[in-house]
Design a protein around this nucleic acid. Structure first.
Lengths: 184, 184
DNA sequence: GCTAGATATGTCAATAGTAACATAGTCTAC
DNA sequence: GTAGACTATGTTACTATTGACATATCTAGC
């Protein structure tokens, strides 16, 4: 089993979804800690189906193309639970901006500021997306938000991590710009 | 050119180093935003040498095996500078712990706490490493620490990002444990 | 009628990255 | 002496991931 497989099971454990749905979820709500393109998702779903962790039904839509709606099986849920209880690997980050920051002393402050401001803009947007998701979550979840065995609770705590990370990134961007624009 | 190539140039722009040195630096000081194994580093160095961005000399050591010490060329420095001034890709994170957290509602609180505590331990260690590097940096850099055209400045601001990220991760771990251990 | 864009699902070639294999010199502690 | 650990450099087979290609349906606006 690949990690992406567990990511998909984690989403399907909440509700059935098509490959296309999963693709979108791997961009927005969980995209800040795991990403995948559709060219990786479709074959992975086929593999999960082949080993019996998910099943699917073709659903015809009146106004849109047909879709395959995948559902997690009891075995899939079991496999996911076992995996969660197992120690995790250390996070891996590949941040091109920080890599460029590391060599920032080679370029003029103006170019440096442009780089960091660009990143700042990106994180402002991301923060807004996550805060929107947080609002939705609080409304939908109600009391379940703080129950450890509710998927809302799990969504809530992961989302809080994302919001915290975005805020920290923003603070850093602003601090760097301040340093760079400081009169010499 | 690959991103790893620029990572290596970024390190070599500060001082000449062997593949083994670079391997170590891709673990500790810049490992939190870019990682690579030696099996990726050695071929990449050969490629950089082939296109004239670095050169090397074999250095015999009295007490240790010979090593190849790589030095960045003027072309290498130019290529690095051009790359830094170019807009960067969004950061990519692959965090297995957060992926497991997303499915944390499937396991007992005890198993959940174990997962998060394990991660907490890891980040406590990392934070200590980075804070140690910070101390070293401040001592070595002196006034250069705040000069935009000094490599110390670039190291300083990237390291601050790492320290901030570790602190944020730790805070989150402790907050989650608090929630999970809260009487129901 | 046509075009652009979203929905929807796939394949395939190429690249990036990992894990394992391979070798060899030196140091320290037993 | 020797076993284990660290320095040092490489290759190779495999896996993961990306980017491009490929196709089809439906809606909305021109």
């Amino acid at each position: 089993m690949t990690t992406l497989g567990y990511a998909l099971l984690g989403l399907l454990a909440r509700e059935p979804a098509s490959g296309y749905d999963l693709k979108r979820q791997l961009q927005a709500p969980i995209g800040f800690f795991w990403r995948a393109r559709h060219s990786q998702i479709y074959p992975e779903l086929a593999r999960l189906e082949a080993i019996g962790l998910v099943t699917y039904q073709v659903v015809a839509q009146h106004d849109l193309p047909d879709k395959k709606v995948y559902t997690i099986t009891a075995e899939g849920r079991g496999a996911l639970r076992d995996w969660v209880a197992t120690p995790a690997e250390a996070p891996v980050v590949r941040d091109e901006v920080l890599l460029k920051t590391f060599s920032l002393w080679l370029v003029e402050p103006a170019a440096a500021v442009a780089l960091v401001r660009d990143q700042e803009r990106r994180h402002v947007e991301q923060l807004q997306v996550y805060e929107g998701l947080h609002q939705q979550l609080v409304q939908r979840a109600g009391a379940a938000l703080t129950h450890w065995d509710s998927p809302y609770f799990a969504s809530y705590i992961t989302l809080q991590k994302g919001i915290g990370a975005e805020r920290q990134y923003l603070e850093w961007c602003r601090w760097v710009v301040l340093l760079l624009e400081q009169p010499a």
